[in-house]
């Protein structure tokens, strides 16, 4: 009956989303009056999960790079071995890759983009975002085994001190004829998916030569950089930075939009960011209606000032 989560790690260390997922899993386990089990793969700091309410860790090790088929097989086997009826995953690219495979294997009803703990556990109802963050829906999962995917930053990280027992888990090896032949992962920059703060630039920046403004502000804040769709369409920035309805979703704590008008398709992708700041020289820009804080002014004057003021603020508060 346990609740099972897949706690993702990278380079042997749990990701922050794994701790958020554990916190979320704990809330479900409490509702169902059961314990919380986590599966990890190639993770070295499993103990940490005990701080977030995990009672047991099934620690698997697997050869080679991430492989969705093999990881999905491990998670499915773990779910079967402990008889888990509720499985929670995060919404990282990897988890969203493997989760549908698990759902089919376990014949589980699966709901993604869940924004909070279940509304009720019997019937099992959750709230999820739909229409690219323009609305929510309440969904009911009717299958015996239920699967939920937690939206990033929707639940937060909450401590729940327990001691997790750690058991080695050796799944039967699953064959896969898919092979990773090249990996190109930025190691020194913050990614949009992981970032607490995202600084985004639009067409108002006039050209790629001005992007040092966005990058300097992002560096000062330890933030990821992003852009509007036309900016990536024109090749000013890589398309991996394009956020919005047809780009990446942003669910950061702070989103700073500079020279972005705030078209409905852009807003759809960033709606679930908690606090939005807009810098735009047009007071009529639609983004001001969706923002928490705004500065009506010229980005080329406001942004350098902001970087300077932030640096002195950080020096004072260091």
């Amino acid at each position: 009956m346990s609740v099972l989560i897949y706690a993702e790690s990278e380079n042997g260390q749990l990701k922050k989303i794994a701790l958020e997922l554990a916190s979320f899993g704990k809330a479900i386990a409490d509702q169902l009056n059961t314990n919380l089990v986590a599966v990890t793969i190639n993770c070295e700091n499993n103990d940490l999960l005990g701080n977030y309410g995990v009672n047991e860790v099934l620690a698997a090790s697997q050869q080679g790079d991430f492989n969705a088929q093999q990881y999905a097989a491990t998670l499915s086997e773990a779910a079967k071995s402990i008889g888990a009826h509720t499985i929670a995953v995060s919404s990282s690219a990897d988890s969203r890759f493997l989760a549908p495979l698990v759902a089919v294997t376990l014949d589980a009803g699966y709901v993604t983009n869940v924004v909070g703990a279940p509304i009720s556990s019997n019937p099992f109802q959750v709230k999820r975002s739909v229409f690219t963050n323009k609305a929510f829906s309440v969904c009911e999962i009717a299958t015996e085994v239920k699967m939920v995917g937690l939206s990033k930053n929707a639940f937060g990280v909450h401590e729940n001190q327990t001691t997790a027992t750690i058991t080695n888990f050796s799944p039967a090896s699953a064959a896969s004829d898919m092979k990773v032949t090249a990996l190109d992962k930025a190691t020194d920059t913050v990614t949009i998916a992981d970032a607490e703060i995202v600084v985004s630039g639009g067409r108002g920046l006039k050209g790629p030569e001005n992007w040092h403004l966005i990058e300097d502000l992002a560096d000062t804040l330890g933030a990821a950089t992003a852009c509007s769709k036309p900016v990536s369409d024109m090749g000013w920035r890589p398309h991996s930075e394009h956020v919005g309805q047809t780009g990446k979703p942003v669910a950061s704590n702070l989103y700073i939009a500079i020279g972005v008008s705030g078209a409905i398709q852009h807003l759809a992708g960033i709606n679930s960011s908690k606090v939005k700041v807009v810098i735009n020289n047009d007071p009529e820009a639609p983004f001001f209606k969706a923002a928490d804080y705004g500065v009506v002014g010229d980005a080329f004057e406001v942004v350098p000032k902001m970087i300077e003021k932030l640096k002195s603020f950080q020096a004072e508060n260091a």
């Binding site: 090249a182 990614t191 992981d194």
Partner: peptide, 9 residues
């Protein structure tokens, strides 16, 4: 993927 890309055969 988050923060990068991979080539798969």
């Amino acid at each position: 993927m988050d923060g990068g890309k991979e080539t798969v055969t």
